[in-house]
Computed example of a mutant assay.
Amino acid sequence: MKLSQRSGTIEQSHIRSMTRACNVMNGINMAQGVCDLEVPRAVIEGAYGAMNEGINIYTPTEGLPRLRQAIADKMKRFYEVDIVPEQVLVSDGATGAFYTACMALLNPLDEVILFEPYYGYHRSTLTSLGAVPTYVRLEAPEWKLDMDALEAVVTSKTRAMVICNPANPSG
């Protein structure tokens, strides 16, 4: 079987590499959202009850209406932001949302600014889609943005910049 041209851009996540190293050492994994606690009985029973009621099909692409309403309500309570459920898109996590947004917005050779240190998945996603990451280094300990450094990387091909706050992996 012949692999795609972009298959060479796929790489193992550093988080997963750290998980493997942790497992070899029988360590405690603090590298990603891995939980070794038992699933609470209420969650198991709730899932079982929902399946018994026939709630076992794919959800709408944008998310369940009740969940979208709850998110809109929370935005109002927590942040005083008025949105309607139709403005809410539920994703399968930040990774899926980032990939989907990049697929929808970027073309091959579009430039995207990443602030260093950056989350490795952001760079690998961009390169796998043919986008070109450009970098602006943020220096410890303040991690302040140098506007001259930012302006220096902006070109006519710049399509986006990734703002990850709090910055991952620096906190």
Rank of each mutant, 00 (worst) to 15 (best):
M51Q: 07
N56C: 06
E53L: 01
D73E: 11
R68C: 11
E142G: 09
E53F: 06
L114C: 05
A72C: 07
W143M: 08
G130H: 12
I83V: 03
T59P: 01
Y118M: 14
T100Q: 13
S91R: 06
P65K: 03
D82M: 05
K74M: 11
A50N: 07
D73N: 13
L106R: 15
V43L: 06
P108G: 14
M51T: 01
E111Y: 12
V153D: 15
A104D: 02
L109G: 01
K157Y: 02
E116G: 09
T134A: 07
M103T: 13
K144A: 11
N107Q: 12
L150D: 02
A70P: 07
E116L: 09
D110E: 10
D146R: 12
A97R: 11
M147Y: 11
K74Y: 15
L67F: 03
L67K: 09
P133W: 13
F98H: 02
A152C: 04
V112Y: 13
R159N: 06
A97Q: 10
P108M: 03
G49S: 08
P133S: 12
I44L: 03
G63E: 01
P108C: 15
R159F: 02
Y118P: 00
F98N: 11
S156G: 03
I163A: 14
L145R: 10
A160E: 04
E139K: 15
K76G: 03
E116A: 07
M103H: 04
T134Y: 05
M161Y: 12
Y99V: 03
Y119N: 13
P117Y: 10
D148E: 07
V84Q: 15
E116M: 04
L64C: 08
S124D: 15
G54A: 02
L126W: 15
L106N: 12
G63C: 11
W143N: 10
R123Y: 10
P60L: 00
V84G: 06
A101T: 14
V132K: 13
V112D: 11
L129A: 03
Y99F: 14
R66T: 13
L109A: 09
T155I: 01
P117A: 13
I83M: 12
E45Q: 04
V88M: 00
V153K: 06
Y121R: 08
R77V: 12
P108A: 13
S128K: 15
G46F: 07
P65I: 01
G130E: 11
I57Q: 06
Y99K: 15
V154T: 05
G96M: 09
A50D: 06
I113V: 13
T100G: 10
A47T: 00
A104Y: 14
L126F: 09
T134S: 13
S156L: 03
M51A: 03
I113P: 05
P117L: 09
L129M: 09
R123W: 12
R123S: 11
E80M: 10
Q69G: 01
Y99D: 03
Y79W: 12
D110Q: 08
L145K: 10
D110Y: 13
G130M: 09
T95P: 00
F78K: 04
